[in-house]
């Protein structure tokens, strides 16, 4: 009796915040990599035309891209200046479209196969001939929902 304990300091020790930033950086790199990975590298130059009445494509997983434009400078020597079609990661011809439509449809769930939007990303200087051919191929392979990709202006 009569003995008193020495008062222990009540303050909690500081949390180490250093590792927190590591975790956040991990997230950051994850998102950076994901956003660049989804787009396939373009082999063709595309300057989109301008339009005012544009609508946004809502479901990114239900969009298939068809790129048409002049081959960029790494391929000009080999392929010339004539506009080319690029599907996924390679150059293609008009008659490859049907095959492309099939594989894109097969890679989606059955319920969504007819809801795929075929986004035509076409350079504004391209002549309509090749675009018309592509559209005809799409019609023949039952791909009717198209989107003429363009940038919004006021």
């Amino acid at each position: 009796m009569g003995r008193f304990k020495k008062e222990v300091s009540k303050s909690t020790p500081d949390l180490n915040m250093g590792s927190m930033s590591d975790i956040i950086f991990m997230f950051l790199f994850f998102f950076m990599v994901i956003t660049t990975m989804r787009e396939s590298t373009l082999f063709v130059n595309i300057r989109l035309p301008k339009a005012t009445e544009v609508q946004k494509l809502d479901k990114k997983s239900l969009v298939a891209n068809i790129n048409i434009g002049e081959p960029n400078k790494n391929y000009v020597a080999k392929l010339g200046h004539e506009p080319r079609i690029q599907l996924n990661d390679q150059f293609a011809e008009v008659n490859d479209i049907a095959q492309f439509v099939m594989t894109e449809k097969m890679s989606r769930d059955e319920a969504y196969r007819n809801k795929i939007t075929w986004s035509l990303k076409v350079d504004k200087k391209v002549k309509m001939g090749i675009v018309t051919d592509v559209k005809q191929e799409l019609r023949l392979s039952n791909a009717f929902k198209v989107n003429y990709s363009s940038t919004k202006t006021k």
Binding site: Q55, K60, S119, R139, N142, F144, V146, Y148, S149
Partner: peptide, 11 residues
């Protein structure tokens, strides 16, 4: 996101 003019092609 992608944006553009949306159209439905005829069968």
């Amino acid at each position: 996101t992608d944006q553009g003019i949306q159209r439905k092609l005829p069968p």
